[in-house]
Design a binder for these strands. Structure first.
Length: 634
RNA sequence: GCCGAUGUAGCUCAGCUGGUAGAGCAGCUCACUCGUAAUGAGCAGGUCGUCCGUUCGAGUCGGAUCAUCGGCUCCA
């Protein structure tokens, strides 16, 4: 029979030949490297029997698909190892994830780190048994009986979801088998470069009401080098962790007495100020008016806005003189109060109110995470009151502004999702149609790639989310723009339309950075603490070499301070090498050294963070250089 | 909130099977006045997260609790 290859050539094989036979026919090296095959567009095992005219592409461990198959097979290998060691455990699901895989087990107790070592050793042992991994086709009902017979109730439940009468596939290695669509590696010995990473609890079907399962995470790679490189990458990422850098650079701290709330130190607060000032300027340029609203607001306002019913548990409350209050979890109800203080004309719209609003949310303790997830955070929040017809233009402007700001802070890699109508919602279908279309069109008109989160919108309207990644690749939402058909009406916002009638405006909730804390957290990790000149808490340190230059150093430090730069002098009685090292570790962008020569010439010698001496400048020239860098956001 | 791990000096960590704490760095003092990633010597610094228990005796064992870390769930 003839088999078509991807390069257009064909090969003749005996009837009944498998994908493996094809690889072997081409060459023994390829046979060794082949993990699976794509036959007529479908991924199959190497044991798959070919037919005349099949188009076949061999999948080796070097390809992305091959790697995925290795990881999937590694999760099976792990499940088999767990069940050999712990016969009472039950298997559930074990998918491939970024950089690895996991498998969820039901077991009477949690797995310990020591168990992990044993499981990993058992995996290597099973791999050495060189078991073939073979696909079997089973009748669905028989498969259910088979797994029930083994006491694998979760697996049986999973198969029961497959329509009756269909065949299901099992993959068998030795005497162990698992329900799986496949494909898998041909033999357990093909899984070589892996490591079990961590144990964690996880809920059956991802539902917190269900039983908690024991999840084991692992990583697997095609080569030893890849595995090593991955582990090294994790180590490097750890060094960028904003919590570690915050301690090293003295930016902020958290402590037991105020979980989820930040104590900002002078250097961290300096960064905050720079960020806030930057956003304040951008907002002013884009037609926003900044306001300030109260922290503690009577319960009745939250009842009217609907928050008291829905988010009572997440709100901090307080009471005095028989009145109940909530510490605000969001700013919008207060912004509507400001809007409502005047009777607005349609000519006032869009009206944009901005606030660096401090919000408190009583997040569950297990969710807190450094600066990324807090109980008290400040949003660069704003609410745009507008008509339905103005939504699209406002969204377009907002997208431009968001990208411009992110770029200025050094972010190019932005992840965007649009969340549309959930089942449970307010507003008419026409309103939702219009709002969703406005968001889609705004993104499309900017040629922006974005994902869709169907049904993930808020009950009050659709939204676009802008997310950035932290050093470990975890995605955090930062910017957002949300259409709201509900709250303005609930809180009696209205304007006078052209025809003299009273109408309810649409409100757009929007934030560029999201939470300033979270954004600064990501900023720290993005720059590894080496902030660009315009953001650095200390932009330059001037060091003398001996006491003889102390006055000169004080004088030029004062000159730079007078120009508005954050500059310190280091007059300690230490060797200049010691000072250079200290300020390099403190990530000061420029270290200026003045010895007798510089003092006599009225210059400074400038060293940057890369350790390069970028030259000796006259003090005037250096100040001009700093002005230039600040203006360029360098 | 759920599962697991962790909590010792400002920081990073050591402290075996219970016998009332140790290093490096940082800090302070003194000497040295020095040219781009660590000069030397000395000093000081901890009720071992908190509470309860076991024990003649607890940093070490048990329980509770708080916080942190890694996941899960959640995230207006």
């Amino acid at each position: 029979m003839k088999i078509q290859l991807p390069d257009g050539s064909s090969r003749t094989l005996a009837e009944g030949a498998t994908a493996y036979d094809l690889a072997a026919d081409i060459g023994p090296g390829l046979a060794r490297a082949t993990i699976a095959a794509r036959v007529n567009g479908r991924l199959v095992d190497v044991y798959h029997v070919l037919h005349g005219g099949d188009e076949v592409e061999l999948i080796t461990e070097k390809s992305d698909e091959g790697l995925e198959i290795i990881r999937h097979s590694a999760s099976h290998l792990m499940a088999m190892a767990v069940q050999e060691l712990f016969p009472k455990s039950q298997v559930t699901i074990g998918p491939v994830i970024e950089d690895g895989f996991y498998y969820d087990f039901s077991f009477e107790r949690a797995f310990t780190p020591e168990d992990l070592e044993k499981i990993e050793a058992k995996m290597r042992e099973i791999a050495r048994r060189k078991l073939d991994v073979k696909r079997e086709e089973w009748d669905r009902d028989e498969a259910i009986r088979y797994f029930e017979g083994l006491g694998e109730t979760y697996k049986a439940r999973l198969i029961a979801r497959i329509p009756a009468g269909e065949t299901v596939s099992l993959y068998r290695q030795g005497d162990w088998a698992d329900l799986c669509r496949g494909p898998h590696v041909p033999n357990t010995s093909r899984i070589r470069h892996f490591k079990l990473m961590k144990v964690a609890g996880a809920y059956w079907e991802g539902n917190a009401d269900n039983e908690q399962l024991q999840r084991i995470y692992g990583t697997a790679w095609a080569s030893k080098e890849d595995l090593k490189a991955y582990l090294h990458r994790l180590e490097e990422a750890e060094k960028r962790d904003h919590r570690k850098l915050a301690r090293a650079l003295d930016l902020f701290h958290l402590q037991d007495e105020a979980p989820g709330m930040v104590f900002w130190h002078p250097k961290g607060w300096s960064i905050w100020q720079s960020v806030e000032q930057e956003i304040r300027g951008v907002m002013r340029e884009h037609g926003y008016q900044e306001i300030r609203t109260p922290q503690v607001v009577d319960r009745r306002l939250w009842e009217r806005s609907g928050h008291w019913d829905k988010f009572r548990k997440e709100m901090f409350t307080t009471a005095t003189e028989n009145r109940d209050y909530a510490i605000k979890p969001m700013n919008c109800p207060c912004h509507i109060q400001v809007f409502n203080q005047h009777l607005h004309s349609y000519r006032d719209l869009p009206l944009r109110l901005a606030e660096f609003g401090s919000c408190h949310r009583n997040e569950p303790s297990g969710t807190l995470h450094g600066l990324m997830r807090l109980r008290n955070f400040v949003q660069d929040d704003a609410h745009i009151f507008c008509t339905e017809d103005q939504i699209q233009e406002e969204v377009c402007n907002f997208i431009d502004l968001t990208y411009e700001v992110y770029r200025r802070f050094g972010f190019e890699d932005v992840i965007i999702f649009l969340s549309d109508r959930p089942d449970n919602r307010v507003g008419t279908d026409e309103q939702w149609d219009k709002a969703e279309a406005a968001l889609h069109q705004a993104l499309k008109s900017k040629d922006i790639e974005y994902g869709l989160n169907p049904g993930e919108g808020a009950f009050y309207g659709p939204k676009i989310e802008f997310s950035l990644k932290d050093c470990l690749g975890r995605v955090w939402q930062c910017g957002t723009i949300q259409v709201d058909f509900s709250m303005p009406g609930k809180l009696d916002a209205e304007y006078v339309a052209e025809d003299g009638s009273r109408k309810t405006p649409v409100m757009l909730h929007r934030a560029v950075l999201g939470s300033l804390e979270r954004f600064i957290g990501i900023l720290i990790e993005q720059h590894e603490g080496k902030f660009p000149f315009w953001l650095a808490p200390v932009q330059a340190v001037v060091c003398n070499i001996t006491d003889d230059q102390a006055d000169y150093v004080r004088e030029i430090t004062d000159r730079m301070l007078a120009e508005g730069f954050r500059v310190e002098s280091d007059l300690r009685n230490e060797k200049v090498g010691y000072k250079v090292r200290a300020h390099t570790l403190a990530r000061v962008p420029f270290i200026l050294v003045a010895g007798d020569r510089e003092r006599d010439e009225g210059t400074v010698s400038v060293r940057n963070l890369s350790g390069e001496n970028i030259g000796t400048f006259s003090v005037d020239d250096w100040i001009a250089e700093m002005h230039d860098r600040r203006a360029r956001y360098a």
